[in-house]
Amino acid sequence: MELVEGLQLQDVTVSIRDDVILDQISFTVRPGTVTALIGHNGSGKSTIMKTILGWQEKKEGKVSLHHIDQDDAFLTFKRDLSYIPEEPFLLSELTIMQHFQLYGQSYQVEEFQLSERINEFIKHMEIDDKLDQYPESLSKGMRQKVQAICALLPDVSLMLIDEPFMGLDVYASDYLQEKIVEKAKMGTTILLTSHQLDRIKDFADNYIMLQQGKIVDQGPISSLPELKRRFE
């Protein structure tokens, strides 16, 4: 199969010991679109995320982003993606501000751009008074906000978002949704997982439905009423 623009998975199989977790998964997410991975718990959504991130070893198959094969140039591949995990993954060693700086430095965001973006995000996410604190002193929702800001800081061509609205208040959820749409409009490829079908139908373009590690259906999100009926 020819490598295409955007994110492409070709026949990806993941197995842990003898259990097949992902079975011959193939799909493409075009640049500037938002695609939602949906399925019951244990269907393989998070494993797809981990495989794209390189956390989970593939048994076979290919993952590419804008023609760059994950196996051939992993660092280049990774430099072009950011990730919001379902559970906030922050360091006990760093304050909230230091997390933002670390992300900025790692993705080589210009200093003025970085401070501009930090100021905007912390204001909207209402964490401007928490910058000197360590993650463990924050609530889970607050930590989730910090994680989301970290992932929004760099300009990348792929964003992986695992349950983006979990633990966020309504205002922060709306703001994050707004930012995701904005990123997509700027050409970023967005792949997210969510159980909140009512919310994702408002801004996602496509869906991929998983069941026991296999794709059972995919298509435009406009078919959501039909999809919801089947999903439930």
């Binding site: 991130l53 390189g54 992993f74 660092l75 990774k78 430099r79 990730y83 993954f89 922050l90 360091l91 006990s92 060693e93 670390l102 992300y103 790692s106 993705y107």
Partner: peptide
């Protein structure tokens, strides 16, 4: 540790 693992999520080689 988790610090290095987290760094490896960013564009740094694990």
């Amino acid at each position: 540790s988790s610090a290095e693992l987290m760094l490896s999520l960013l564009p740094h080689s694990r």
